[in-house]
Amino acid sequence: MSALRQQVPNAVVWLVLLTMPYWMGAVGGYTELASRVVVLGLAAMALNFLLGFTGVLSFGHAAYFGLGAYGVGMTIKYLVPSTPLGILVGAAVGTLAAMVIGALIVKLRGVYFAMVTIAFGQVFFFIAFRWNEVTGGDDGLTGWKRQALDLGFTRVDILGSDKAFYYLVLAVFAACVAAMALLLRSPFGRTLIAIRENERRARFLGIPVEQHIWLSFVISCFFVSIAGTLYALLSNFTDPRALRWDQSGNFVIMAVLGGMRSFWGPLIGAAIFVVLQDYVSSQTENWMSVIGVFFMLVVLFFPRGVLGILRRRLAS
């Protein structure tokens, strides 16, 4: 019975996600907004793999998100007009960069780790910004479109139909989320949680902490870069803002807002954040102030996040 009850939240989440394009319009949204929630939800959940389940604060995940975005865009534009291949290339580029940078920063902890990830994030921003001929510079990478999926027996037109694209996004999301859930349940995932709870004790138990943190960082960045590829495909466009520091901050606030100690928390945070941002930026030019104040309010009054508070209520 209790096992069944544990599955209720999962069932609710999947039910909502599966039906989203059909009721999004009725509540004042649109399909593209639904896709954006899922994509950024994936990014926030991927960040939370590192932040919430390994206890390591990265404030530079936008870099890998953006590398994924540029990876897919440049593959389709310059190499092969194929959506799946583009996603693979984008994920590979982001993951490779994370492997190199992860190796450099793995000895640092806490605020210093955060600071170095922020700083490294800027490198890719400047590359995208400066390398005009290839990346389109400040104007962004244009002149490419997501390509219809060729499944052999049928073609899925993800370009013409927003709904078809949404379900592609959801399928990728499901695969990534399932992989993360499995990883977290494995002995490896349990070890990560042990490191989060008490790094020194984990070290005394003979766990190679640096290796684990590096691996967790790389896994997290792999999933973030996949989210990045989907983000670029969603708008058939990407620009340096996708990998700037403010995007990294957005991922972190999504994770905190939803509840970074829970698996689904960041998705809920992403949904709230995306809808809020969409609404505020259509209402006022000073949306930056509104988002900034929102950050401060969440930190001061809502640090446990939606699911953290919910869980406390249920427990008491």
Binding site: L57, G292, V293, F294, F295, V299, L300
Partner: peptide
């Protein structure tokens, strides 16, 4: 925020940076 995870002060000053820049604008 002192004594809490450094994550929170970082997020707060991040939001403050938004407000200050936008306020100047």
């Amino acid at each position: 925020l002192y004594g809490r995870d450094p994550l929170y002060s970082l997020l707060l000053t991040f939001g403050l940076a938004y407000v200050l820049e936008d306020g100047a604008r």
